[in-house]
Write a protein that binds this DNA or RNA. Structure first.
Length: 347
DNA sequence: TAGGCCATCTGGTCCT
DNA sequence: AGGACCAGATGGCCTA
């Protein structure tokens, strides 16, 4: 279907004045979605339907290219475009456009409502439409699994299901909002790697995350009303998992798979928490590690002599790429801490 | 600059 | 006739 050329700006003002198309017709409920008529991009400007072009088109049907009379068309004869009919047609088109805008705004409002009940809602960083729908699908699916199979919402599979088919940034967002951090498992991993027992506790490894009091991610929050107590999610064993793989109990998903997560080292240096954030009791977040490390050289003296870990910029020995990356990804720019870490390591 | 996302216009189709 | 719904087309905005 070819899109008809749009009217010229001059047509628009004529159209508006002739139709009494007031600004209130164009303004959306929130007041800023719909541009004013004069600000329409050319292709969006209302067409002056029933214009001379249309009349010419009608005449062209009667006369062939060579000037001879074209054979009579079969079927119902086209009604003649009288001025009154043109006007009705134009008014109808304008009203239809307004309805369509309104309809789409309603659709978007519904999407916003849907976003607001997702496990990671953030006005600042809205999920795209498609990601909202995918996450909603996954959320329902995951919750169903919880109800039907008794799967724990703190399980590895639950988060996998939530992230299934989502883009990496959205997966990161979800993971971050679930406070899915490497705190416990990472330290455990370091234990394995470094052979340091008892590391990671409150008084343990210097790398252990400063707990509560540090800011939570700025990209969303998991409200208590969001059903499950995921707030206490400590992270599961991701060692042998990928976000694209589901537990055997999970049905196949047709959507595109999340690209393999890689360590991109996207860390942002967070500052002091807001009072609101500080009073929240949340699980230590990898961001906290960033905060910590920004002021603490690595490796710490207590680990002197231990083999230098490799892999992740922060905790290179860790094989927990998924949660690390998922949790850190929303923070940009990536090079800040990455370069910081390289300089730390080069020391 | 390419690609993703979005808002809007538009014509077709179906239904009331 | 008119409204709802849909999908195609298009340009703007933003980000990597």
């Amino acid at each position: 279907m070819m899109t008809k050329p749009y009217g010229k700006p001059g047509d628009v003002t004529e159209l508006v004045s002739s139709l009494g198309w007031m600004e209130e017709d164009l303004s959306s409920p929130d007041g800023d979605r719909t541009p004013e008529i004069g600000h329409y991009p050319l292709h969006r400007r209302p067409v002056e339907l029933g214009s001379d072009d249309m009349e010419e088109e009608e005449e062209e049907e009667e006369v062939g290219l060579d000037g001879e009379k074209a054979p009579k068309r079969r079927g119902p004869k086209k009604k003649k475009m009288t001025k009154a009919r043109q006007e009705r047609f134009r008014v109808r088109r304008v009203k239809a456009n307004a309805r369509e805008r309104s309809r789409m705004h309603g659709l978007n409002d519904a999407l916003d409502n849907l976003r607001s009940v997702m496990p990671c809602y953030s006005k600042a960083q809205k999920l795209s439409k498609i990601e909202t729908l995918r996450l909603a699908h996954n959320y329902i699916w995951a919750l169903s699994e919880v109800l039907e199979s008794g799967q724990s919402p703190e399980s590895h599979g639950f988060v996998e299901m939530l992230c299934k088919g989502l883009s990496q940034p959205t997966s990161n967002l979800v993971a971050g909002c679930l406070q899915l951090g490497p705190s416990s498992m990472l330290i455990n991993k370091l234990d394995e790697k470094c052979g340091v027992p008892g590391v990671g506790g409150p008084q343990g490894h210097p790398i252990s995350y400063p707990s509560p009091g540090l800011p939570s991610p700025p990209y969303g929050s998991l409200e208590a009303s969001h059903l499950l107590h995921l707030k206490g999610f400590k992270g599961a064993n991701y060692e042998n998992s990928s976000p694209n793989e589901c537990s055997s109990t999970t049905p196949p998903y047709d959507g595109p798979l999340t690209p393999p997560l890689s360590i991109s080292g996207n860390f942002a240096l967070k500052q002091e928490p807001s009072p609101h954030e500080a009073e929240r009791n949340f699980t230590p977040h990898p961001t906290h590690a960033t905060h910590y490390i920004s002021s603490h050289p690595y490796p710490p003296s207590s680990l002197a002599g231990l083999p230098a870990p490799q892999g992740h910029p922060l905790f290179p020995g860790s094989r927990f790429e998924l949660p690390l990356d998922m949790a850190f990804e929303p923070f940009t720019p990536s090079h800040i801490v990455t370069s910081q870490m390289s300089s730390i390591y080069s020391e």
